[in-house]
Design a binder for these strands. Sequence first.
DNA 1: ATAATAGTGGGTAATTGTGGGGGGAAATGG
DNA 2: CCATTTCCCCCCACAATTACCCACTATTAT
Lengths: 145, 145
Amino acid sequence: MFLGQYTYTLDGKGRLTIPARFREEFTGAAVVTRGLDHCLTIYPLTVWEEIAQKVNALPITDPRGRALRRIFFADAMNATLDRQGRVLLPDRLREYAGVDLNAEVVIVGLDRFLELWSPQRWEEANARQMELMDEDPALWENLQI
Amino acid sequence: MFLGQYTYTLDGKGRLTIPARFREEFTGAAVVTRGLDHCLTIYPLTVWEEIAQKVNALPITDPRGRALRRIFFADAMNATLDRQGRVLLPDRLREYAGVDLNAEVVIVGLDRFLELWSPQRWEEANARQMELMDEDPALWENLQI
DNA sequence: ATAATAGTGGGTAATTGTGGGGGGAAATGG
DNA sequence: CCATTTCCCCCCACAATTACCCACTATTAT
């Protein structure tokens, strides 16, 4: 169960420290991939496998099935934590999130997985999220919380 | 589990290096064949057998069933990795993918198998895939991720 | 107050991608 | 059936990258 947000620094080698309290849920492996809104998503392996299974069920004969597969898997990466609990982010994903080397990133716990944001984007997204909720209360209703 | 995309160079002998982190899933043998959209697909033997079985189940009375069979089986080849983890691509397959000798190729992990693309084709396909997804968000919703 | 843990940085050793040479098997032609 | 050529696989080599390991400081917990 991942909760809260933390600001860490990406080091000069592109390594990201996973908060210590989250590490045991990543026993060995994590999958990092592109998220929506220009953030990155970090899944524990078990959670990822659930998602991958759904994508794999799409028919390969359908162009959209092939497209979704490619979008989904091609930008993902299988990462293992080093002894200090860090993962190495490939440049492509780092750039997608708009994060520089030796710069700060925000790690956000979303219960079953983590998100990684550049601090600027996170702030903007936060503001936009609040507006969305104010503008369109119907969204809330459908959720039935 | 194959994830991510990597650009490698096909050497002058037509040999393709399989990324090191993927090799152990190809213990011994791989099957290379024509994929859709002018790429090549590379399967571990066990996965190949599963898929071959599905293709075999297609009705031979359906023209598309016959077409898929032919695409799938006629150009398939059984390749073994050499000690450096490379496979030798036959000219016919190489040309189908539009890849030259001593040129770069993109290897894409799609969870259970790999695809091989010429860099230009991969870029084009990517753009088209993004469009497809934008046009039809229903696909995403059905996944319920 | 002391010990343990966390975040961060860097050095070193192993691995990886890539190229080419040589031996042997298979194919080709006489 | 034999000789020659072609092709394929194994080996070696090397540069660049990667990943592992150790170290230091600050914070947290005992």
